[in-house]
Amino acid sequence: MNVELRGIAAPGGWPAPGCRCASCSRLRAAGVRHGPVSVVVDGVAMEDCARTDVPGGFELHGPRGGRALVAAGPGTRPEPVSGVEYDAVLLDLAGSPEHLGYLRHVGAVAATTEVVAIHVDHRVPSPVELERRMAFWNRPHHGPHRTLLLGGARSGKSAEAELRLAACPEVLYVATGPVNDDDPGWTERVTAHRLRRPAWWRTVETTDLVSVLKDETGAVLVDGVGTWLAAVMDEAAAWEDPSLAQPRLDDLVSAWRRTEARVVAVSDEVGLALLPTTTSGRVFSDVLGGLNQRLAAESEEAALVVAGRVLELG
C-alpha cells in the first residue's frame, strides 16, 4: 500500500486561523502552513476508496487490496477489526501516541505496518518536535538501548520517559519509590502517574533493578534512580559510610551495561538544587551525582528535562 500525504493537519490547518499559541505562532513566523488531512492511497484519493466504519474512525480498503486503519479526527482512537494486521495506520499521534502502543499490543500493527501521523495541530509544539517523537515511536521495542533522563523536581522528566515508550506494545514500569499511605501528597503524585500510564503496561514496585535489567529484553521504564539509591543507602546503612553501598552501585552499572532491554530511566539532576544543609543530604547528592555520570557514560542517549523542554546531551 502506497500512502501519499498531501496534508497532515487538523480540519482548521496548522497554524490554526487566529490562534496565538506558541506552536501556531512559530509556524506563522516561519511562513509555514500545513493543510488539513489529504491522502492518496495507491494513486486514489482517500475519499474515493472503499471504507468500513469502526468506532473512532474507519477501515480503508485500498485499490490494490491493502487495508489501513484511519482516525476520524483529532482526539479519536479507531478500533481495529479483530484479527486484522494493517498495512498502514493513520492516527492522531499528536494527541494519543499510546493508541499506537495499544494497536501493537493487540497485533493490529506489525513491524511492516506503515505508521502515519494525521490531524496534527498545535497539541505538538512544532514539526521538528513531531519528528523527534516519531523517531522514538518507530524505534524497535526491544534492546539493548539505554536512555537516562535527568531533571529537577516537577521538570517533566517522568512524562518525557512515558512519552518515549508510549508506542511500545509492552512496557514494564518499575516504580522504585516507597509506598507511603500516610503522605497524601505523595499518594496523589503516585495516583497521577498511574492514571497517566496505559492500562496494558505492567507495573512492579521493587528496588531490585539488577534483576530487572538482567531478565527483561523489552521496554522498561525505571522511575527513578534517586529513590532507588535512597532505598539502597537505607538497606546498606550507608548514610555515614557511603562505601557500604558501593557494591550495589557497581552491580547496577554492570547490569545497565549488559542489559538486553530497551530501558529508559529517570533520575534527579543534583546540580540544579541548593547545596544540601545536612550531612546526609550532601552524601546523597554526591553519590547520586557520581551514579548519574556512570549511567550516562553507559547510555546510548542522555537528556536533561527542564520545564518540560528536552535538551539532548551528546
Rank of each mutant, 00 (worst) to 15 (best):
G218K: 11
Y86A: 09
G7V: 08
R133W: 07
G95H: 00
L149I: 15
E131I: 10
V40E: 13
S155K: 01
D286G: 11
A88R: 06
H99T: 02
A297L: 13
C49H: 07
T217V: 14
R123K: 08
S158C: 06
V210W: 02
A108Q: 09
D208Y: 10
A108T: 12
E4C: 00
V128M: 04
P74A: 14
L221P: 08
L165S: 08
G281I: 01
A219H: 00
R248F: 09
F136H: 14
A261D: 11
E235R: 06
E85N: 08
R257V: 04
G281L: 02
R262N: 05
Y86F: 11
L90T: 07
D87S: 12
G31M: 12
D183L: 03
V310D: 02
L244C: 03
D268K: 02
R257E: 09
A110N: 10
E301V: 14
P36D: 08
G66N: 04
S285I: 04
A22W: 05
P127T: 11
L163V: 01
A236I: 00
W201N: 12
L295C: 06
V204Y: 06
D121H: 14
L272S: 06
G95L: 10
R202G: 15
P276S: 04
S211H: 14
R194N: 04
R164N: 07
V120A: 15
V120Q: 12
L311Y: 08
A153P: 02
G43R: 12
A303L: 12
R189N: 05
R194T: 00
D87A: 13
V174D: 04
H61L: 11
P178R: 15
V70P: 00
R6K: 12
R64V: 00
G43M: 09
D87E: 13
P242V: 05
G177L: 02
H122G: 08
L229S: 00
V54A: 12
Y173M: 08
V220Q: 06
T191D: 14
G156D: 09
H99C: 05
S82M: 00
D92R: 09
T278Y: 01
S158W: 05
P36R: 02
L60K: 00
A238H: 06
L69N: 03
V225G: 03
L291H: 06
S158Q: 05
D181T: 12
A94F: 01
I118P: 05
P63V: 09
A72W: 08
G83K: 01
A72Q: 09
R132L: 11
E260R: 15
W14A: 13
V171R: 13
P247Q: 07
R133M: 03
K157Y: 03
D208E: 14
A50M: 09
A199G: 02
R248Y: 13
L221V: 15
L221G: 07
L5Q: 04
W228G: 01
E98D: 13
L90W: 11
G66Y: 02
